[in-house]
């Protein structure tokens, strides 16, 4: 799962260049969208340059929308965007090899943005309150687009060791001798 998190070091540009690029197109939220094809594709970076993601098929705007959707579907305020970005990165890979899938994603995002405009916002991502964005998601809940995204997140988000750490789960234990001497019966509040 970590292999799909393209951290800064995997991008062949320095953070300062990244920041320069990021100013060309900056979303109002925490994600910075970087256009251009200098890397053979476009890429998306966090506005604080903490991480960046190369994109093969989807536009940076589309990926930023998917990341916001991921956060709104499973909102964990202690999770950074990198965890959500990692969770939806696979859709870009799929889109790169499947034109029909790419079209389904892009049309889904277009519909979501259209609905946001009907509601008086410039886009889904620019809709300020979570509850308003959730209302927009409710409107497309029965679509293949939404179910593909939500279904993918169940594994894509919650199967990340970095997420387990956030949730306090200690995971694999055999190599540590199990939990027999590591708190299997340490409950003290009953």
């Amino acid at each position: 799962m970590e292999s799909i998190i393209h951290l800064e070091k995997s991008v062949s540009r320095s953070p300062s260049e990244l920041m320069k690029l990021s100013r060309r197109q900056l979303l109002k939220r925490s994600l910075a969208v970087c256009g251009g094809y200098a890397l053979g594709g476009s890429f998306l970076a966090a506005s604080d340059a903490a991480w960046a993601m190369e994109l093969k098929a989807l536009s940076p705007e589309s990926m930023a929308t998917l990341i916001q959707m991921a956060r709104d579907i499973y909102p964990h305020d202690s999770f950074g965007d990198a965890l959500y970005a990692a969770a939806v990165k696979g859709h870009d890979d799929t889109a790169a090899g499947d034109a029909e899938f790419k079209q389904m994603i892009e049309e889904g995002i277009a519909l979501l943005n259209n609905n946001a405009m009907q509601a008086g916002n410039s886009s889904y991502v620019d809709t300020g309150w979570e509850s308003d964005r959730v209302a927009l998601l409710k409107g497309i809940e029965d679509s293949t687009f939404f179910s593909t995204l939500r279904g993918g997140l169940v594994v894509g988000l919650y199967n990340q060791p970095a997420v387990w750490e956030k949730l306090g789960y200690e995971g694999s234990s055999f190599e540590k001798g199990g939990y027999l001497t590591r708190g299997f019966d340490d409950i003290n509040w009953l």
Partner: peptide, 8 residues
Amino acid sequence: AACQQLGF
């Protein structure tokens, strides 16, 4: 062997 409470 005896159980080491692996949890899996």
